[in-house]
Protein backbone atom coordinates (compact mmCIF):
# COMPACT_ATOMS: atom_id res chain seq x y z
CA UNK A 1 0.00 0.00 0.00
CA UNK A 2 3.06 2.28 0.11
CA UNK A 3 3.95 4.41 -2.89
CA UNK A 4 7.60 5.04 -3.80
CA UNK A 5 7.47 8.27 -1.79
CA UNK A 6 6.92 6.23 1.38
CA UNK A 7 3.37 7.59 1.68
CA UNK A 8 0.15 5.61 1.43
CA UNK A 9 -1.15 4.90 -2.07
CA UNK A 10 -4.61 6.47 -2.41
CA UNK A 11 -6.18 3.79 -4.54
CA UNK A 12 -4.93 0.84 -2.51
CA UNK A 13 -6.13 2.58 0.65
CA UNK A 14 -9.55 3.12 -0.94
CA UNK A 15 -9.65 -0.54 -1.98
CA UNK A 16 -8.94 -1.59 1.60
CA UNK A 17 -11.58 0.75 3.06
CA UNK A 18 -14.30 -0.47 0.69
CA UNK A 19 -13.54 -4.20 0.91
CA UNK A 20 -16.56 -6.15 2.19
CA UNK A 21 -18.44 -2.87 2.41
CA UNK A 22 -21.85 -4.39 3.05
CA UNK A 23 -24.58 -1.75 2.75
CA UNK A 24 -22.19 1.15 3.29
CA UNK A 25 -23.20 4.24 1.28
CA UNK A 26 -20.25 6.24 -0.09
CA UNK A 27 -20.15 9.90 -1.13
CA UNK A 28 -16.97 10.91 -2.98
CA UNK A 29 -15.85 14.52 -3.26
CA UNK A 30 -15.13 15.75 -6.76
CA UNK A 31 -11.87 14.76 -8.42
CA UNK A 32 -9.61 11.85 -7.66
CA UNK A 33 -11.72 10.34 -4.82
CA UNK A 34 -14.44 9.73 -7.46
CA UNK A 35 -11.98 7.94 -9.75
CA UNK A 36 -10.69 5.94 -6.78
CA UNK A 37 -14.07 4.64 -5.58
CA UNK A 38 -15.01 3.81 -9.16
CA UNK A 39 -11.71 2.04 -9.90
CA UNK A 40 -12.11 -0.27 -6.93
CA UNK A 41 -15.65 -1.17 -7.99
CA UNK A 42 -18.49 1.00 -9.25
CA UNK A 43 -21.53 0.41 -7.07
CA UNK A 44 -25.16 1.64 -6.80
CA UNK A 45 -24.34 2.88 -3.28
CA UNK A 46 -21.59 5.15 -4.64
CA UNK A 47 -22.28 8.83 -5.23
CA UNK A 48 -19.24 10.27 -7.03
CA UNK A 49 -19.62 14.04 -7.30
CA UNK A 50 -18.92 15.69 -10.65
CA UNK A 51 -19.31 19.16 -9.11
CA UNK A 52 -20.45 21.04 -6.04
CA UNK A 53 -16.99 21.46 -4.53
CA UNK A 54 -17.31 21.64 -0.76
CA UNK A 55 -20.55 19.63 -0.70
CA UNK A 56 -19.38 16.11 0.09
CA UNK A 57 -19.49 16.19 3.90
CA UNK A 58 -22.89 17.91 3.99
CA UNK A 59 -24.37 15.45 1.49
CA UNK A 60 -23.13 12.76 3.83
CA UNK A 61 -24.89 14.47 6.74
CA UNK A 62 -28.21 14.76 4.91
CA UNK A 63 -28.08 11.07 3.98
CA UNK A 64 -26.96 9.99 7.45
CA UNK A 65 -29.85 11.88 9.06
CA UNK A 66 -32.35 10.40 6.59
CA UNK A 67 -31.05 6.84 7.03
CA UNK A 68 -29.83 6.59 10.64
CA UNK A 69 -29.48 2.79 10.48
CA UNK A 70 -27.13 2.86 7.48
CA UNK A 71 -23.43 3.67 7.66
CA UNK A 72 -22.40 6.58 5.44
CA UNK A 73 -18.80 7.26 4.39
CA UNK A 74 -17.61 10.49 2.80
CA UNK A 75 -14.27 10.15 1.00
CA UNK A 76 -12.90 13.44 -0.18
CA UNK A 77 -9.76 15.45 -0.77
CA UNK A 78 -8.09 18.10 1.36
CA UNK A 79 -9.01 20.92 -1.05
CA UNK A 80 -12.67 19.87 -1.16
CA UNK A 81 -12.85 19.54 2.63
CA UNK A 82 -11.24 22.95 3.12
CA UNK A 83 -13.83 24.57 0.86
CA UNK A 84 -16.67 23.22 3.00
CA UNK A 85 -14.85 23.37 6.33
CA UNK A 86 -17.80 24.91 8.18
CA UNK A 87 -19.57 21.57 7.72
CA UNK A 88 -17.37 20.20 10.51
CA UNK A 89 -19.20 22.48 12.96
CA UNK A 90 -22.61 21.68 11.50
CA UNK A 91 -21.98 17.92 11.62
CA UNK A 92 -20.42 17.93 15.10
CA UNK A 93 -23.55 19.61 16.47
CA UNK A 94 -25.87 17.03 14.86
CA UNK A 95 -23.71 14.09 16.08
CA UNK A 96 -24.77 11.46 13.49
CA UNK A 97 -23.42 8.13 14.77
CA UNK A 98 -23.50 6.62 11.28
CA UNK A 99 -21.38 9.22 9.46
CA UNK A 100 -17.64 8.99 8.77
CA UNK A 101 -15.48 11.41 6.83
CA UNK A 102 -12.10 10.33 5.45
CA UNK A 103 -9.90 12.99 3.85
CA UNK A 104 -7.33 11.74 1.39
CA UNK A 105 -4.75 14.45 2.03
CA UNK A 106 -2.16 14.87 -0.71
CA UNK A 107 -1.60 18.54 0.20
CA UNK A 108 -2.39 19.61 -3.37
CA UNK A 109 -5.24 20.52 -5.72
CA UNK A 110 -4.79 17.46 -7.91
CA UNK A 111 -7.22 18.25 -10.72
CA UNK A 112 -5.93 21.72 -11.53
CA UNK A 113 -2.18 21.39 -11.82
CA UNK A 114 -1.04 20.29 -8.35
CA UNK A 115 -1.09 23.69 -6.69
CA UNK A 116 -0.44 23.42 -2.95
CA UNK A 117 -3.32 23.47 -0.45
CA UNK A 118 -3.29 24.89 3.06
CA UNK A 119 -2.54 21.45 4.54
CA UNK A 120 0.86 21.63 2.83
CA UNK A 121 1.60 24.51 5.19
CA UNK A 122 0.53 22.71 8.31
CA UNK A 123 -3.21 23.38 8.52
CA UNK A 124 -4.36 20.46 10.66
CA UNK A 125 -7.78 19.16 9.61
CA UNK A 126 -7.92 16.64 12.46
CA UNK A 127 -7.35 19.43 14.98
CA UNK A 128 -10.11 21.44 13.29
CA UNK A 129 -12.50 18.48 13.53
CA UNK A 130 -11.60 17.99 17.20
CA UNK A 131 -12.12 21.67 17.80
CA UNK A 132 -15.55 21.44 16.20
CA UNK A 133 -16.45 18.66 18.61
CA UNK A 134 -15.68 15.38 16.82
CA UNK A 135 -14.93 12.88 19.60
CA UNK A 136 -13.57 10.16 17.31
CA UNK A 137 -10.74 11.04 14.93
CA UNK A 138 -7.68 9.42 13.37
CA UNK A 139 -4.56 10.72 11.68
CA UNK A 140 -3.20 7.98 9.44
CA UNK A 141 0.24 7.86 7.85
CA UNK A 142 1.10 4.14 7.89
CA UNK A 143 -0.52 1.29 5.92
CA UNK A 144 -0.76 -0.81 9.07
CA UNK A 145 -3.20 1.77 10.49
CA UNK A 146 -5.68 1.32 7.63
CA UNK A 147 -7.45 -1.76 9.07
CA UNK A 148 -8.25 0.24 12.22
CA UNK A 149 -9.50 3.06 10.01
CA UNK A 150 -11.81 0.67 8.19
CA UNK A 151 -13.04 -0.72 11.50
CA UNK A 152 -13.79 2.78 12.79
CA UNK A 153 -15.93 3.50 9.70
CA UNK A 154 -18.01 0.40 10.35
CA UNK A 155 -18.18 0.86 14.14
CA UNK A 156 -21.13 3.28 14.08
CA UNK A 157 -19.67 5.44 16.83
CA UNK A 158 -19.51 8.59 14.78
CA UNK A 159 -19.39 11.21 13.76
CA UNK A 160 -15.91 10.03 12.87
CA UNK A 161 -13.27 12.08 11.06
CA UNK A 162 -9.92 10.95 9.68
CA UNK A 163 -7.10 12.34 7.61
CA UNK A 164 -4.93 9.94 5.62
CA UNK A 165 -1.73 11.44 4.32
CA UNK A 166 -1.39 10.01 0.81
CA UNK A 167 1.12 10.02 -1.99
CA UNK A 168 0.48 12.93 -4.36
CA UNK A 169 0.85 11.01 -7.62
CA UNK A 170 -2.17 10.47 -9.84
CA UNK A 171 -3.69 7.18 -10.92
CA UNK A 172 -5.38 6.13 -14.13
CA UNK A 173 -8.69 7.93 -14.65
CA UNK A 174 -11.57 5.53 -14.09
CA UNK A 175 -14.73 7.50 -14.73
CA UNK A 176 -18.11 6.80 -13.14
CA UNK A 177 -21.33 7.37 -15.13
CA UNK A 178 -21.42 11.03 -16.12
CA UNK A 179 -25.21 11.47 -15.93
CA UNK A 180 -25.85 12.56 -12.35
CA UNK A 181 -29.50 11.58 -12.43
CA UNK A 182 -28.43 7.97 -12.95
CA UNK A 183 -25.91 8.18 -10.12
CA UNK A 184 -28.47 9.70 -7.76
CA UNK A 185 -31.37 7.47 -8.65
CA UNK A 186 -29.50 4.18 -8.58
CA UNK A 187 -28.49 5.02 -5.00
CA UNK A 188 -32.07 5.99 -4.11
CA UNK A 189 -33.31 2.69 -5.55
CA UNK A 190 -30.61 0.74 -3.69
CA UNK A 191 -31.70 2.36 -0.42
CA UNK A 192 -35.45 2.79 -0.90
CA UNK A 193 -36.32 0.11 -3.47
CA UNK A 194 -38.22 0.72 -6.74
CA UNK A 195 -40.69 2.88 -4.82
CA UNK A 196 -37.96 5.56 -4.83
CA UNK A 197 -38.96 6.48 -8.37
CA UNK A 198 -42.57 7.11 -7.34
CA UNK A 199 -41.89 9.21 -4.24
CA UNK A 200 -44.03 12.34 -4.16
Amino acid sequence: MLAESGKIDRREMTRALLADRGDLAVIAGLGAPCWDITAVGDHPLNLPLWGGMGAAAMIGLGLALAQPDRKVLVITGDGEMLMGIGALATIAVKKPKNLSIVVQDNEHYGETGMQETATKYGVDLVAMAKGAGFKHTMFVIKPEEVPALRAAIHAGEGPFFAVVKIDASSHKLVLPPRDGSIIQNRMREAILGPAAHHQL
Binding site: A25, I27, L47, G52, G54, A55, A56, A57, M58, I59, G60, L61, G62, L63, A64, L65, A66, Q67, R70, G84, G86, A87, A89, T90, V93, K94, Q184, M187, R188, I191, L192, A196, Q199
Partner: peptide, 26 residues
Protein backbone atom coordinates in the same frame (compact mmCIF):
# COMPACT_ATOMS: atom_id res chain seq x y z
CA UNK B 1 -38.67 17.23 11.65
CA UNK B 2 -34.87 17.25 11.87
CA UNK B 3 -33.63 20.84 11.99
CA UNK B 4 -30.04 21.55 10.98
CA UNK B 5 -28.55 24.98 11.59
CA UNK B 6 -25.93 25.70 8.95
CA UNK B 7 -22.76 27.77 9.03
CA UNK B 8 -23.48 28.98 5.48
CA UNK B 9 -26.50 28.52 3.25
CA UNK B 10 -24.68 26.50 0.57
CA UNK B 11 -24.37 23.71 3.13
CA UNK B 12 -28.14 23.52 2.97
CA UNK B 13 -28.12 22.84 -0.77
CA UNK B 14 -25.76 19.91 -0.16
CA UNK B 15 -27.82 18.73 2.81
CA UNK B 16 -31.00 18.66 0.70
CA UNK B 17 -29.12 16.52 -1.84
CA UNK B 18 -28.13 14.04 0.86
CA UNK B 19 -31.59 13.97 2.40
CA UNK B 20 -33.17 13.14 -0.96
CA UNK B 21 -30.67 10.31 -1.52
CA UNK B 22 -32.03 8.80 1.68
CA UNK B 23 -35.70 9.46 0.88
CA UNK B 24 -36.19 12.50 3.12
CA UNK B 25 -37.88 15.59 1.71
CA UNK B 26 -36.09 18.75 2.84
Amino acid sequence: ITVTTLTTEEEGIALMQGAWLGGDKA
